[in-house]
């Protein structure tokens, strides 16, 4: 079993929204990657964005971007 570590998980209403989020993160150099939504989360979309919690401040760079929507943001051990 892999060791768990604190992760900031962001969920999305649709797959398209998840992909839009990934594109912006890549363009802005915000670290993270798309993962299958953890089973403990009741999510809308099957994909979630996982990133180190210490990088949370970087999310400010994505605020206000048109068409960029997420459903929930939570910290958990993954």
């Amino acid at each position: 079993m892999r060791a768990k570590r604190p992760t900031l998980v962001i969920t999305f209403p649709t797959t398209t929204a998840a992909l839009g989020w990934e594109k912006e993160c890549i363009e802005k150099g915000v670290p993270g990657r798309l993962i299958p939504v953890p089973v403990t989360i009741t999510a809308d979309c099957g994909l979630a964005w996982a990133m180190p919690p210490q990088e949370r401040g970087r999310l400010a760079e994505l605020e206000g971007l048109e068409g960029l929507a997420y459903s929930a943001l939570m910290e958990m051990d993954l």
Binding site: T14, L34, E66, G67
Partner: peptide, 30 residues
Amino acid sequence: GGHTSELSAARTVFHTRQALARLFAFPHPE
């Protein structure tokens, strides 16, 4: 799914959606 293969498909479809939205000057790719 979230494997590279499934993400590849999702990225491709997303790209096509965006490209068409650009072609039709439609600011709502979703």
